Amino acid sequence: MLHRTKHIIGASLMGAALALGLSGCEVQGSDEREVIYQPVEAIRVTLAERFEVTRLFTGVVQPAQTADIAFEFGGTVQAVLVNEGDRVEEGDLLARLDTALLEIERRQLLAQLAEAEATLRLTDANLKRQGSLEADGYASRQRRDELEANRDAIEARMQHLQAALDGNLVRQEKAHLLAPFAGVIGERFMEQGSAAAPGVPALTVLETGRLEARVGVPRQLAQDIHRGDEVDLAVAGEAMRGQVLAVGAELKARSHAVNIRIAIESDSILAGTVVELTLRDYIDTPGFVLPDSALTASLRGLWRVYVLAPVEGGLYKVEARDLQLRYSDSRRAYVEGGVRDGELVIASGTHRVVPGQLVRINQDPA
């Protein structure tokens, strides 16, 4: 019994000693626990007098000339001699109408003109004889007046017939569609045997060799662009220079932009290709350039940044500052007010800090 009691007392003493040892380690650990401060990335801001902005505007490459050509007179299409994509030269025959009826009309007019000429010759001969008879006293003056009036009427009819022949010739010429300039056939709207109505396009011809970009830009930027200026373009990923041909004199109804026409020198670009015009603009207000990740939305249309105020021990206190955003893209922002030249601003990870929090900087910013 005594032996058992000794064992129980010994076990109790050992448990108490172990508990006391463990309690001492926990206190010691809590006394030596290190406070960990949130690390942040920071930049030192520098005041800029103005900010250069690169603006991109999208347009379309178009031929210098595009013509929807049509027959001026209606008729049946006898032949269409070109297809879409065919290259043509100025004056090439593209399509023609059936001119059989016009040819019949021409022969009729020629016959009527020949008849009038014969009648005129007879009238002139009668006038000559009438003059001889009058000289001998065998004819009256009235008969001569009648013959002269007939001659005038015949001459007027001949002029009318000649004008009709000229009109017939013009209509026969207009029955042939000719290429107005060297180019390529863009679209074909008619086929052989179809009925062509006056003024309805039969073919579209796109001029080759001369291309131009047409880009709409805001009026305030268009005021600084002049004919002959060299501008930067990007067409199908290819950077090139273009020369301004003209600056529009009116705003587009939908976009309220001014149309700029720019000459393009290239043989490999197709009409309809998207083109980008690069223009440089300036914000003439002092401000600061910040990474876009440094900004968070605030109230009343303002934006917020977090400034680092130094405290002892190499730590910094987070301060919230509101400012005005003047420009922003996917990488950077230009802001006005709120911060001072040379201050430290948190560059990213602003969602992990709050005003008044103590933080440390990962590395000393430049």
Rank of each mutant, 00 (worst) to 15 (best):
L221F: 06
V354W: 01
V82D: 06
T350V: 13
G91M: 03
L302Y: 12
I43A: 01
A48Q: 06
R321K: 12
E336W: 00
L22Q: 04
V244I: 05
E26T: 15
Q172R: 15
G21W: 01
Q363V: 15
T58C: 02
A139P: 00
G131I: 07
G272A: 09
L251C: 00
E32Y: 09
Q220S: 08
M1W: 09
D166N: 14
L20T: 13
R171I: 01
A64N: 11
V275W: 06
A263D: 05
Q243H: 02
G85P: 10
E238K: 03
L47R: 10
R326W: 11
A48K: 06
Q28V: 12
F288A: 03
R121V: 08
L94S: 04
Q243C: 02
E155C: 06
L101N: 04
A246C: 01
G59C: 07
G137E: 10
E115A: 14
G216S: 14
P310C: 06
R332P: 00
R157I: 00
D92V: 04
I361W: 14
A67M: 09
G314D: 08
G167H: 13
R55Y: 06
G337Y: 06
E173R: 06
R121D: 11
F71H: 12
D98P: 10
R44N: 00
A213M: 15
A333I: 05
P218Y: 04
A197M: 11
R50H: 07
L133N: 08
A42S: 08
N362R: 15
V60Y: 03
T66R: 14
V217K: 03
E32N: 12
G74T: 10
K128G: 07
G131W: 01
T54K: 05
A182I: 03
A257W: 07
T123E: 07
M1Y: 08
K6G: 08
V45K: 05
L277A: 01
V200K: 12
C25L: 15
V275N: 02
F71Y: 10
